[in-house]
Nucleic acid binder design. Structure first.
Lengths: 208, 208
DNA sequence: CGAATGATCCCCTATTAGGGGGATTAACTT
DNA sequence: AAGTTAATCCCCCTAATAGGGGATCATTCG
């Protein structure tokens, strides 16, 4: 059975080219093409597409919201962002909204077909530059710019789990005062004034 | 000029196969192959490889640490993880350590060559299942499964910034007791017993 | 119209946390 | 051998937090 595809793209010429391209391979059924995604949720519910190609920069409702609407309507539909934007903001917003792939418009038609098949096989097609950005976002530099010791890291980790000073002390088999000492040192090193700030900083900066 | 490649893989047969495979295409220079990455840092400094293929499960020093050593020695060297592991833990640890790609050992030789070229062109080759996990990690539920109200979200956000109850109250122009009420309701809804746990949960589950 | 909810406010008590000191020991560095 | 650091422990005091009760008022909703 042909893959059912829906396209959201406000550039009429490009959209028509895509429709033409996909239809003429014979492998795809273009179930619809729209120049906006105002009604993306209902469209998805009605046509139950396998794949959605989603532009980002569209009037009224952006493709970012579009992804969210499609995914809420039908989580199994794979959404591939198809855009000229390489900036981090739009990329990560799209991914957070649930996009399954992210292609730059400069890719060749054959790569687009590859990408559609890849996403149907459970993959996540991305243009190389995009994939690099995504992996780069995990990269964590020198974790220890605050020179937190191993012991302090243990204490800090327990703190983020909501342990009280007393619980930390008993779990580590040290006295209450020692645990407190560690905490005080941690606060000084992280330049914070309380445990709550320390937890926030530790989690946000991936110290733990 | 041929791409200079170094392989860290403790399975002798597989490693030799890889060396054979890469050498016989003529496009690659295998500058070294090792069954452990104890000395990965120095090896990288000496041979300055373009690409490193890194197994994860190795005796003494794991490939995760191996990536870190290679990247510290020479950030420009692209490191591709080459492993049987699909579990989230090892995947994300590798990415955090700075891996540029993540391939499962079941891929075909031709795909391996593709991946090596892709990583040299600034991409981030990943097996489809891996790419899906990576993108999935950005996905945020947005379900508000804890039915936190708008006001509570304000309070929770301030809490994660380390604000005390008193500060929250004055910033929101409400009484101390009201702020405290909100906090108590938040703790109940998040099923936690203190502010520290609430902050942890809010940040980890992207509630804020 | 009542019921439910969200936001506001109050009281009481026990525990916890935070800031300020200071001290000892073992291990590693210079 | 002297110095540094990490880890351990102790005391005092004040402020903040958590858990347990309630209460009022407006809005939303069936």
């Amino acid at each position: 059975m042909a893959l059912r595809i829906i396209i959201f793209e406000d550039n009429d010429k490009l959209r028509e080219s895509l429709v033409f391209l996909l239809k003429n391979t014979g492998d795809y059924e273009v179930a619809g093409d729209y120049n906006n995604c105002v009604d993306a949720g209902n469209i998805t519910r009605v046509y139950e597409p396998d794949v959605v190609l989603m532009d980002i920069d569209m009037p009224e409702v952006t493709g970012i919201k579009g992804v969210r609407m499609v995914k809420e309507a039908r989580p199994d539909t794979a959404v591939i962002m198809f855009t000229v934007f390489e900036d981090d903001e739009k990329l990560f917003q799209s991914l957070c909204a649930g996009a399954n792939g992210y292609l730059l418009k400069k890719i060749s038609p054959s790569r687009l077909f590859d990408a559609i098949h890849e996403v149907m096989e459970g993959g996540a097609p991305m243009s190389p530059a995009i994939a690099r950005k995504v992996l780069g976002s995990f990269r964590q530099g020198r974790t220890n710019q605050y020179s937190i010791t191993a012991r302090e890291l243990e204490v800090l980790t327990m703190l983020t789990k909501g342990y009280s000073t007393k619980m930390i002390a008993s779990d580590l088999n040290i006295s209450f005062e020692t645990a407190r000492s560690h905490l005080k040192n941690i606060y000084t090193k992280l330049h914070v004034n309380c445990g709550k700030e320390a937890i926030s900083k530790a989690l946000k900066e991936h110290i733990i």
